[in-house]
Amino acid sequence: MSDEEYKKVFSKNLLHFLEINGKNQADLCKYIGVSSATVSDWCNGKKMPRMDKIQSICNWLHIEKSDLLESQSADSASYYLNEDARDMAQFLFENPEYKVLFDASRKVKPEDIQFVKEMIDRMSNQNG
């Protein structure tokens, strides 16, 4: 793979993981301690960060370096480590009234998501 292709893959993956973690470029600038122009260059595929910065980004987003550096196919492993958790997250995405649950970790157990959903349902029914 050429340098340009690596930059394109990295930028696509970085933007993807920022989005699913509810983060933006400004958050990354603040966390990493670099300028907005630098992060913009990373996100636009113009430049690649050094490996120490890549590791810091991975630590912050709770992902592996390969998640940022390798092309992700549509059938590759899901962001969620548990299939049931992925299904619950899709439900939450489709039902924005449960948005509070998006702050949950990707390692959250499906039964924990279900428990909190049931609590929200109970509270909504009492107030409705």
Rank of each mutant, 00 (worst) to 15 (best):
V100E: 14
F10K: 05
E64R: 08
I20V: 14
L14W: 00
C29F: 00
V9P: 06
S105P: 07
D84G: 07
K117D: 00
I63H: 01
T38Q: 14
K109R: 11
I54S: 10
V108S: 04
V34T: 14
D75W: 00
D112Q: 03
S78C: 13
E83R: 05
K8Y: 09
K53A: 13
S71L: 10
D87K: 15
K12S: 13
V108P: 01
I32C: 01
A89L: 01
E97T: 07
V100Y: 09
F102I: 00
K23G: 00
R122T: 04
N125K: 11
F10E: 05
Y98R: 04
I120E: 02
Y31D: 12
V9W: 02
Q90D: 14
S11F: 07
A77W: 00
A85M: 03
R122G: 02
R86V: 03
Y79N: 02
M123E: 12
Y6A: 12
E118D: 11
M88H: 06
Q55N: 14
S66A: 15
L15P: 04
D27F: 11
A85K: 02
Y80K: 00
F115G: 07
I120M: 00
S40Y: 12
W42I: 11
D67I: 09
F93R: 08
Q114W: 13
S66Q: 14
L28S: 04
A37T: 14
S35G: 15
R50Q: 11
M48I: 09
M1G: 15
Q25S: 09
M123F: 13
D112T: 10
S36N: 15
D27P: 12
L92S: 02
D67E: 10
G22Y: 02
V108R: 01
D41G: 10
Y31I: 14
R86P: 05
M123A: 09
R106E: 02
S78A: 07
F10L: 03
M119L: 08
H62E: 15
W42V: 11
K99F: 13
I54V: 15
E4K: 09
F115C: 07
S40L: 07
K12Q: 13
D27C: 14
D67A: 13
E97A: 02
Q25T: 08
Q90C: 08
E64A: 08
A26C: 06
C29M: 03
N44W: 00
E70A: 12
Q126F: 06
S71G: 06
G22M: 05
N44Q: 13
N125H: 03
M123V: 08
K65F: 01
D112M: 03
Q114H: 12
M119W: 04
F102C: 00
F17E: 07
S76T: 08
K53R: 12
V34N: 15
E4H: 05
F91E: 02
E94G: 02
V34C: 15
F115A: 12
D87T: 04
K8M: 12
F10W: 07
A26F: 12
A74P: 09
V100R: 08
F10N: 05
K99G: 15
